[in-house]
Nucleic acid binder design. Structure first.
Length: 323
DNA sequence: CCATAATCCTGTACGC
DNA sequence: TGCGTACAGGATTATG
């Protein structure tokens, strides 16, 4: 399931393979993919065609490509616009050169395809790119469970007081993602501020960790892993955490996500594939998630699974005592 | 402000 | 073999 490390892997892949290219056409195979746009597929095509992809940006699990829409003659004033992508549960972005893509069969869960013209912007050649900058490519959005989406969106300044955003200039974000907090790998994030905010929540610590408006990027898998590392029970009330424990939880989440990023992202059931089509393999390093009944690697007690928030929580009942 | 539940979706796993 | 059911889960919305 794409959480922050997986989305970051996709972002980096896009940065290598599609920046500088101009959208030459858009095919939407499933209208659900563009459900966030009132004008649907037509609106997406209208607002993307002719724009150049300028940068690949991520916050938490939200990913967007900045659009240079001068060429499209857009009459929309303001700070600019972006193509916002959320991968949901099973989204993938796959880049292939056009001839290869059109020679083979389409992926059964192909939801949308962007046709990207050659990069004529004169940027330096990426030696790792499977395709040359001068070759047309397609960017395929594949999504089995269709929780993901594509949407064009205008950029806005993050509102004052955005969680975790203290002390740094407010970045521009897509309007529909303006409520999403900074993530733990954001250089501007302030762990002290976040730890205080975490303890200020009157909910269970895991619920607070999963709240994307407080801190973004942590999903069910890394929440369980972070709490195991910090030796904190998922259902411990956040206000009962010591300041030190709250900070440890956040640092643990950052650590486990950095480790996953190095490994290329966690992968399950081959549902997640990075931008080049290579699966991540961090799932072999998970300590508790999906390991019900197995011995805790730290103390040997069996890993337990409990229902929480209509999800599963995995934790060691000996290492992670509820206080 | 906070919690809970429902909603969207499809493939897999499992019991019978 | 097949059929029904449970499960997986992110974000949003509704309701208490």
């Amino acid at each position: 399931m794409p959480e922050l490390p997986e989305v970051e892997t996709v972002r980096a892949g896009l940065a290598d393979h599609v920046l500088g290219r101009v959208v030459a056409g858009v095919d939407v195979h499933n209208p659900r993919t563009v459900r966030r746009l009132p004008g649907g597929a037509g609106q997406l095509a209208d607002e993307l065609t002719g724009t150049r992809l300028r940068a690949a940006v991520r916050r938490g699990k939200f990913l967007w490509l900045l659009l240079d829409d001068a060429a499209a003659g857009s009459d929309a004033p303001g700070a600019g616009s972006a193509l916002l992508v959320h991968l949901g549960m099973s989204g993938q972005l796959l880049v292939r050169d056009r001839l290869t893509a059109e020679a083979g069969a389409e992926h059964p869960h192909l939801r949308a395809r962007l046709h990207l013209a050659p990069d004529d912007s004169g940027r330096s050649l990426d030696a790792d790119a499977a395709e040359a900058p001068g070759v047309p490519v397609v960017l395929d959005f594949v999504d089995q469970r269709t929780f993901g989406y594509l949407a064009t969106d205008r950029l806005v300044a993050t509102p004052d007081g955005a969680p975790g955003g203290l002390g740094a200039p407010d970045p521009l974000v897509p309007a529909s993602a303006a409520h999403i907090g900074r993530d733990l790998l954001d250089p501007a994030v302030d762990l002290g501020v976040l730890a205080r905010a975490l303890r200020g929540r009157r909910s269970a610590v895991k619920r607070a960790l999963l709240d994307q408006t407080l801190v973004s990027g942590v999903g069910n898998i890394y929440a369980d892993e972070a709490l195991w590392r910090a030796r904190v029970h998922p259902e411990q009330p956040a206000p009962t955490l010591s300041a030190r424990a709250a900070r440890t939880v956040l640092e643990s989440a950052a650590e486990v996500m950095r480790a996953a990023l190095v490994a290329g992202g966690t992968s399950f059931d081959a549902l997640y594939v990075n931008v080049n089509g290579a699966s991540g393999y961090f799932d072999r390093s998970l300590e508790v998630y999906g390991r019900e009944g197995e011995p805790c690697s730290r103390c040997g007690a069996p890993v337990r699974r409990a229902s929480f928030m209509n999800r599963s929580s995995h934790f060691c009942s000996r290492c992670q005592r509820r206080r």
